[in-house]
Design a protein around this nucleic acid. Structure first.
Lengths: 198, 198
DNA sequence: GTGTTATGTTAGCACCGCATACATTACGCA
DNA sequence: TGCGTAATGTATGCGGTGCTAACATAACAC
């Protein structure tokens, strides 16, 4: 850290505001415009020079979340040993997905828990990339399947498992157990008609 | 409607407040304590005699939502002709589930989009009943499968599809199309290992 | 250098959740 | 029938919020 000079113009307020917002999120607080400004050491109205309104702030945070989630998923794909079955691959992805939601619940809610405004092109891009990543995996695992439908189904499955663990169930359960349950759910779905779900 | 007498004591304020909150929701507004009081023609502090805080109001609304959703699901089950395959049954349930979410998005978010407080016993009961309903269907359709795991998987699938349609996708698509897509996703999942997803 | 524009500040509006003190009514009990 | 208590309403006020308008300062192009 270099010495901080207090100048009238901040330098890169937008980034500082986003960082402050992330801090708020990780601290379990809802990042309000004023709180974020306070944390960045700036007047309450300053953020409005960089974000039109609160939705815009939330949207920017969501974009970060989408990129982070995508990063976590590709990292998970990279960790899978070379000859991996569809079941192994999907389990790894789903576990990573749910783990992300549980580790950063506020961010996850920001990303998915409110109506997405299609106006924000950055947000559209970020969520589109996520969609594409999943689609590619699906076509690699199931070349003959209809890509859109199957990828919607599998994404829905992971997404639903994440939300159910986030909001509907007993919370402070060990993450190992959550991972096991998610993997079991995936496995069972995959095996449903093959041996009548043994 | 009988003549309304303006008395100091309302009579059944709690019910009136809930009704006002539902109206707010359907009107696309977020039901705040003060707004609900206003709508019920009562002072801003009055609701606090019936709901400890805003979370309590939200919780009460969520309970209604759970009961309504459960009602919609049993109604859907009732509409299925007698000899129904697992695929038909699950499609009907999932379509109903997603349809509920799309028709009442604000309520759905209230029910699932925030951390559930286990303190509210009514809420626990309502969501438990939903859980049981699904579990019963699952064991009827797949008697040999492990109930908990499979029901989690299928609920997760429907839940995820609902949320994805709610928040992640193009919104004003005809409900017929949504239903078709949901059904296709379910069908494809069920058929995954049986003929390689034709 | 100077005018324009970007980026800050201050002040203020209407709203919110919630607490406290007080008013009015309903109700059990003598 | 009357009275005390509890239930249920009101009035008021605090600190927080999103957002806007008017103003101040600095950066930058010419």
């Amino acid at each position: 850290m270099s010495t901080i000079e207090k100048t009238y113009h901040h330098g890169d307020l937008r980034a500082a505001l986003l960082a402050a917002a992330v801090e708020s999120l990780e601290a379990g607080e809802t990042p309000s415009m004023r709180a974020v400004a306070r944390r960045a050491g700036v007047s309450p109205a300053a953020p409005y020079r960089h974000f039109a309104d609160r939705d815009a702030l939330d949207s920017a945070l969501a974009v970060r979340g989408f990129d982070d989630l995508r990063g976590a998923l590709v990292a998970a794909l990279g960790r899978i040993p070379a000859p991996a079955s569809a079941q192994e691959t999907l389990c790894a992805l789903a576990v990573t997905y749910v783990d992300f939601a549980l580790r950063r619940p506020a961010l996850f809610h920001l990303m998915f828990g409110n109506e997405c405004d299609d106006a924000d092109s950055e947000r559209v891009r970020a969520s589109g990339q996520l969609h594409d990543l999943l689609g590619d995996v699906v076509t690699r695992l199931f070349p003959t399947a209809e890509r859109a439908t199957l990828s919607l189904a599998l994404w829905g499955l992971a997404h639903g498992l994440a939300f159910l663990h986030l909001d509907g169930k007993l919370r402070p359960e060990p993450t190992d157990e959550v991972a096991a349950r998610v993997c079991a759910a995936i496995t069972m779905i995959l095996a449903l008609n093959q041996g009548e779900a043994s």
